[in-house]
Computed example of a mutant assay.
Amino acid sequence: MSTQTLSLALPPQYRVDEVLAFHARDAEGLAEQVSGRTLRKAVLLGGVPLLFTVDFLDDEARCRIEADGELDAATQVLAGEALRSMLALRIDPAPFAAFVRGDVFFGPLVEHLPGLRIVQSATVFEALTWAIIGQQINLPFAISLRRSFIGQAGRPHSSGLWCYPEAADVARLALDTLTSRKFSRAKAETLLRVARMAADGELDLRLNDDPQGSAAQLLAIKGIGPWTVNYTLLRGYGYADCSLEGDVAVRSAIGRAQGMAEKPSIAQAQAWLAAYAPHRTMAAAYLWASL
């Protein structure tokens, strides 16, 4: 086993409880566990099972990374990127707060919830597959399917936690392995399609600064629509201007903000969100929080 320790400074108004709550959504704790102010999460990176143990102090996060294998330089880089994502350190909320100062809707929300952040998934592949799993189903069922997905395609770390799988692990699954565990055929086919494309190098899921390019390559894949793309850009890449007009909760919050009797249409929500570019990711975060 190889180990690495590092500390990350936490910015002012960092909301530890909300970051921990995000990682504690699966009460069974198959791949993530939260105890007090400590987070443990297992994930495969470069084929190596890693366990992140993060202790949150007042102004820093101290992390121990334990690898069931060699923690080489390339894996250390991947681990550092994963940690920044898991701790919601990719998107600075300050520019949005300045942008909406005086805004009738967002101004009071930001004052009430200063420093709100969006947690990213450890990898882009995790974000993409979670978006596919969660399409058009309720959150408890989505979490149950995610747990099953990890158990089928992931691998256990020596600590006992299961690692979220990489593309190559998912690509080896048979279709009926998923459909026999309550995945719809369409959802299973899309998961296997993106996994095999990523494993073969046809789909590039490395972090980058090209949201338009990332969106275009994802939209070209059968079974992936605009909501999945924008959710992946938000949770996976950590882009600051993702427009979530296709999200039901976002539309509900917009409707409530507008005093509408029903949710606005996707086109209406898109038009409303356009006023908050280039900060629409943080707009989505506060819209979710407003509910």
Rank of each mutant, 00 (worst) to 15 (best):
A275T: 14
G225P: 13
T232H: 01
S243V: 13
H157D: 13
P12S: 09
G238V: 04
A24S: 00
Y239N: 09
L273M: 11
R84F: 15
L109T: 09
G154M: 09
L51K: 05
Q4T: 08
V43Q: 10
Y231I: 15
S265F: 00
L175V: 11
A274E: 11
A171Q: 01
D103G: 11
L287M: 09
A167D: 02
W227F: 04
L287F: 09
P11R: 04
S35I: 14
G238C: 02
L173N: 06
G238T: 03
S7F: 07
A153F: 06
R172M: 03
V250N: 12
D210C: 09
H23R: 00
A127Y: 04
Q120S: 01
A24T: 00
A215T: 00
V19L: 11
A188H: 01
V43T: 13
A82T: 03
D92T: 02
D209N: 13
M86K: 11
V110Y: 02
P12D: 09
D58E: 12
A195H: 01
A174Y: 04
A127S: 06
Q135N: 12
E111G: 09
L192N: 06
T38A: 12
L145A: 09
K187V: 03
P49S: 08
T177H: 11
A261P: 02
A275L: 13
R185W: 00
L30W: 01
T190N: 12
E245W: 04
E18R: 09
G69T: 12
G134E: 05
A42K: 00
A98V: 12
V229N: 07
R40F: 00
A249I: 02
D209R: 13
P226I: 07
W130R: 08
R155Q: 15
Y231W: 14
C242I: 04
V54H: 11
G115M: 03
F105P: 13
F141A: 14
E66C: 09
Y164N: 02
D68C: 08
V119Q: 00
V229A: 07
I266K: 13
A98N: 10
I266L: 14
I65G: 07
I137W: 02
L10R: 05
L233N: 02
A220K: 01
K222R: 15
L203N: 12
R64N: 15
G223Y: 00
F52M: 00
P278T: 14
Y276P: 07
T179I: 03
P49H: 05
L89A: 05
A67M: 09
A82N: 04
